[in-house]
């Protein structure tokens, strides 16, 4: 089966100037990322702020241009941003992001906004448009009497449903969701997560789910990629990553999720903060905070390689099965 979406060695560098007279220094927001999403599969991307996960999401859709590397959708390369081909392809891949109020037009009713992609991509004859909008609203759990409402008349959860309905209007094959439930309350978050799972099962949509909330990602994603400073440091199936994280950063991340009944003392608390991407540490970018860093970590950057269980990890201390046991013993 060919992958729905493939990215190969994506690089995005921003030039950041410090002060007015400062020399511009490069910030490698996305630094050589390769990934693949199969049809109907959900790939979760986790990482802290500044890890480049949102930039990556935009690059996957061609909204941010890759300075190196390539994105292929259904086997063919992504056309250049702004061209007619790109627009046609974008109907097949949609973006949902964190703040629904910013994503919606305050002066249009939600029915009008959900119907907009149908007009733009000329997908449905005008006389059937209202039916299709009603169908979409039902699919995301909005009541038909809410069609004439304006965004400010809806709750946060309902707005996010409207944004998702609009994204689904063009029957996309791929949905990139950037923190789609982070702004919602717990009880509403569960409603939207369930809805996304149902929609995906029903329509076989491939999904890239970007979030800093590990519990939500674990629930929704089949596979998870963990990012640190623009690179993937570990990738495996959701069950494998959360049951037995191997990269020290993933271990710390999983351990930092507060679990009631589990005392703070047993948790692995990292020292320091994520480094400034403009001031990337030498060698492995994680080594200044890493509890098992060795000399080699300061000088050489570890490559992402297979370590069994369908897992890849980029860490000198995690070479293979035997080495990882030793590492675990040392970290315990």
């Amino acid at each position: 089966m060919t992958a729905l979406l493939e990215a190969e060695e994506l690089v995005r560098i921003y030039e950041v100037r410090r002060g007015i007279f400062g020399r511009p220094s490069p910030v490698r927001a996305v630094d050589g990322i390769s990934l693949a999403v199969m049809p109907g599969e959900t790939l979760g991307i986790v990482g802290e702020s500044g890890s480049g996960k949102s930039t990556l999401g935009r690059m996957l859709l061609g909204l941010d241009l890759a300075q190196a590397g390539e994105v292929r959708f259904a086997g063919s390369p992504m056309p250049r941003n702004g061209t007619a081909e790109w627009r046609a392809m974008r109907a097949k891949m949609q973006l949902v992001y964190q703040d629904p109020l910013a994503a919606l037009d305050r002066r249009l009713t939600i029915a009008a906004q959900i119907g907009e992609p149908l007009q733009i991509h000329r997908l449905v004859p005008r006389q059937y448009q209202a039916d299709r909008v009603a169908e979409l609203m039902e699919a995301v759990g909005l009541r038909s009497d809410q069609a004439g409402r304006f965004p400010h008349e809806l709750s946060g959860g309902q707005r996010q449903r409207a944004v998702i309905a609009r994204a689904l209007a063009s029957r996309p094959k791929l949905l990139v969701c950037d923190e789609p439930v982070s702004a919602l309350d717990v009880s509403i978050q569960a409603q939207v997560v369930n809805m996304l799972r149902d929609l995906q099962e029903r329509n076989g949509i491939g999904m890239v789910f970007i979030s800093h909330d590990l519990k939500v990602v674990r629930n929704i994603a089949d596979r998870v990629a963990v990012m640190y400073l623009g690179r993937i440091v570990e990738e495996a199936s959701s069950d494998v990553v959360f049951r037995s994280p191997q990269h020290p950063y993933t271990k710390a991340l999983v351990s930092s999720v507060p679990v009631p009944g589990k005392p703070l003392e047993g948790r692995m608390i990292l020292q320091g903060e994520p480094p400034n991407p403009a001031d990337r540490p030498s060698g492995c970018a994680f080594h200044p905070r890493c509890p098992v860093a060795q000399d080699i970590c300061r000088t050489s950057s570890p490559a992402l390689r297979r370590i069994g269980d369908g897992r890849t990890a980029a860490c000198h201390a995690v070479a293979g099965e035997t080495a990882s046991i030793e590492t675990m013993r040392r970290m315990a």
């Binding site: 709750s155 959860g157 309902q158 309350d185 717990v186 009880s187 509403i188 978050q189 569960a190 409603q191 997560v193 369930n194 799972r197 590990l214 519990k215 939500v216 674990r218 629930n219 959701s238 069950d239 959360f242 049951r243 999983v254 999720v257 679990v259």
Partner: peptide, 20 residues
């Protein structure tokens, strides 16, 4: 019940219906 778990099976979440 609405909070997803960090371990155990990845079942559907149990939301609270309706809104505040």
């Amino acid at each position: 019940d609405a909070i997803p778990r960090i371990d155990g099976p990845r079942d559907r979440l149990i939301p609270i219906p309706g809104t505040v």
